[in-house]
Write a protein that binds this DNA or RNA. Structure first.
Lengths: 153, 153
DNA sequence: CGGAATCCCAAGCGATACTG
DNA sequence: CAGTATCGCTTGGGATTCCG
């Protein structure tokens, strides 16, 4: 995070001068994009389209759990952001082909980084979740940290 | 999931307190992690904690828009996944320090890849969204692709 | 075939109030 | 200080139906 996109507070807890997003929140572009990526199907669709162009129902069959509605919405989102293209072939019955744009393909790399991380650490995460879940019952005492923080501000 | 044995439910109905999540979709670990990353605050919190450990209210002040509720939930999520640690200092008033674990820090790199991509292409995306938004009204004709797909079957 | 429209439930999230 | 509890609004998303 090369640090220029969001007014993340610097090292010291400063009085905090935020450029106030006066109106509603639009957040930083990172958050914005991340929410796209975080929805249930976008990543999967991008990855599949990363292989080759797909027709609508072909894509539908290629991604088992998805509904037509969500496939359509996801594709519209990608199209709107310029990540995927939509080509309509005026045949009967109509044929529509979706493909990643250059921009869309440029996302594949960064996406893979996170995806690889997820694959690599999935078991560790799963174990952590299980462990924390158990500790809910055993509910031990308070940790004894190596140093004591002075709360006195 | 767990197997091939046909364990016929016996006379006794299983008490079933916990929804043992025979749920159809647990999806792949990638999707699972991506949804965590895709929620509204997780990434921001991870990035901020990536700088140094923070106390709760310090973190609260450091992330302008977030509510206590969502900060708590986000931190609990990170803790559950083993990405962040929570250290309680038995002082008065109490002091709680949050920090990234090694696992959490290992996510910073991959996350940066996507974040940098977002920063780098935010304007292109914004222009695309604006353009598509306009085309909703001008609503042009059908594209004329270079080849004709045979709809076949 | 490739959608759009509608319905409806569940999850995400924010605001507020209360607590140890 | 560091939370928890409750409420209600807003989105996300699945199922179904209809249409060019």
């Amino acid at each position: 995070m090369s640090g220029t996109h969001t007014d993340v507070p610097s090292m010291v807890a400063t009085p905090l001068v935020l450029p106030v997003v006066a109106d509603e929140y639009e957040q930083c572009p990172v958050t914005d994009v991340l929410r796209r990526v975080g929805d249930k199907w976008t990543v999967l669709v991008v990855v599949v389209l990363g292989q080759r162009p797909y027709r609508f129902n072909e894509l539908h069959r290629g991604i088992p759990g998805i509904s037509q509605r969500m496939l359509t919405r996801t594709l519209r989102g990608l199209e709107e952001d310029g990540l995927a293209s939509r080509a309509v072939f005026p045949t009967v019955p109509p044929s529509v082909e979706y493909a990643l744009t250059d921009l869309g393909r440029s996302l594949l790399g960064p996406l893979s980084a996170v995806a690889d991380w997820a694959v690599e650490h999935q078991e560790q995460i799963a174990r952590s979740r299980a462990r924390v879940g158990q500790e809910r019952f055993t509910a031990g005492g308070v940790q004894e940290p190596s140093r004591i923080a002075a709360p006195g501000q």
